[in-house]
């Protein structure tokens, strides 16, 4: 267990360093963008973070279903860990999106459909975490959170469709990042994606470790309480 975590941590570090190197040294600056073309390099980690955000919430969805079916605590712990990590990565998306927007279109927030969907997603999973914090017993917390994890995930595609149509009705001032990616850019993006996927795995293992230790702690405390 410990070995596996350290190995994944090491791989994460190596791939991340490689990704950063590729972003700044290898990936070409787009030639078809007039103003501040270097800013396009935000794309690599912005998109990777978005990908992890969605992946994390898909894991929450699957783990929630498995929990309701099996009532095995491990699925609940997996869902909770994945949700928290997902919030961290979507926060990165929401912080870097406006910076890119400001540089490329001179507006912090343009209600771009993808970014707006990410914002709603972020709120949905904040709600998931709030539910976890406000339920009293462990069993109830796991059950209520699993139910909301399913509802929230099912909602996301509808949110995306609705926001996309809403934006096409309103005048679209800016066409979002329609920059064709060259093979070198694609390689860089791909390595960044792998780097963040490993980072996600590493965080997940850490979180699961913590949860396991906490369960063990609760068990010992329970035993001690029974003794005295």
């Amino acid at each position: 267990m410990r070995r596996r975590k350290q190995a994944i941590g090491l791989i994460t570090l190596v791939v991340t360093v490689l990704a950063v190197y590729l972003v700044f040294m290898y990936a070409p600056v787009p030639s078809n963008v007039r103003d501040l073309p270097e800013v396009q390099k935000i794309l690599y980690f912005h998109v990777s973070a978005a990908w992890i955000g969605f992946l994390a919430f898909f894991v929450v969805f699957v783990a929630s279903i498995l929990y309701l079916k099996s009532r095995d605590r491990k699925w609940d712990v997996l869902a909770a860990s994945s949700a928290e990590i997902g919030v961290v990565f979507t926060t990165i998306v929401l912080l870097t999106g406006p910076i890119w927007g400001k540089a490329a279109w001179n507006a912090w927030w343009t209600w771009d459909p993808r970014l707006t969907t990410t914002l709603v997603l972020w709120f949905i999973y904040l709600a998931y975490i709030v539910i976890r914090n406000s339920a009293e017993e462990d069993e109830k917390r796991a059950r209520l959170a699993a139910i909301f994890g399913i509802i929230g995930f099912v909602d996301v595609p509808i949110v995306f469709m609705a926001i996309r149509w809403w934006r096409t009705i309103h005048p679209v001032v800016f066409e979002a990042g329609q920059v064709g990616l060259t093979p070198k850019m694609l390689t860089t993006l791909f390595v960044s994606l792998i780097a963040f996927t490993f980072l996600y795995l590493y965080y997940l293992l850490l979180r699961l470790d913590i949860a396991k230790a906490k369960l063990e702690l609760a068990g010992i405390k329970e035993k001690l309480r029974a003794k005295f």
């Binding site: 709603v120 949905i124 709600a127 539910i131 406000s134 949110v159």
Partner: peptide, 12 residues
């Protein structure tokens, strides 16, 4: 809790 969990879901 209700508004916090309901409002994001009813966006569409």
């Amino acid at each position: 809790l209700l508004p916090i969990i309901l409002f994001p879901v009813i966006v569409p």
